[in-house]
Amino acid sequence: MAPKKNSAKRPQPSTPKPSAPARIVKVQSSDGHILQADVRALLLSSTLAATIKGYDDENKPLEKLEVNNVVGFTLKLVLEWCEKHKEDDPAIAQAEKDKKNIFIPSWDRHFLTKLPMGNLFDLITAAYHLDITGLINYGCKTVANSAKGKSTEEMRELFGIPEPWEQPSTSTATWDD
C-alpha cells in the first residue's frame, strides 16, 4: 500500500513504556458509577489534570475524582479513549486543533464511527467539559466526515434536526435539491 500523506505528523499508537507502576484512581460519574483509571490517562483532560495537581500540591491522597457533568456510559468511553492515548504527545493534539483536515488513526476511527450519533455527541460534549483536545479533534472530524457529501435532508435525518425550514432560494444549498 502506498504511504499516506503527512505520515510523519501522524500520532503514533500508544505503546506502554516499562516505567513506574500505574497510579490508579477511582472516577465517579454524575449518575454514581465508579470507574478506575490510570492517572496518566486522566492527565489528557486539562480539567482533571488541574484537580489532580491540586491534590498532589497539597500532598492529599487522591482516592476518588468526581466528574459531575458526565454520565457513567459516556465516562467509560472517555476513559477508554484516554487509556489508549495516555502516551501521546499532547503537542500533536494542540497542533491539530484548528486544522480542517486531520488524520484519524485506525483505532480511533473504529472507536468513534461505531458509536451511534447521539453517543458520539455525548462523548464530544464530555470531551469539551473535560477539555481533552485530541478527543475533541477526532470527534468533530468524525461528525464532519459523517455529514460530508450529504444533502440537507440527509443531514436533518443524521443530526435529528426537526422541522424543514424555508430558506431563501438564493442559497448555495440549492445545489443538492
Binding site: A147, M155, A173
Partner: peptide, 13 residues
C-alpha cells in the same frame, strides 16, 4: 471541518 458544499447543505437545515 466540513467541505464547502456540505457547509452549504447544513446551512439550509
Amino acid at each position: 471541518k466540513l467541505d464547502y458544499k456540505s457547509r452549504c447543505s447544513l446551512r439550509k437545515c
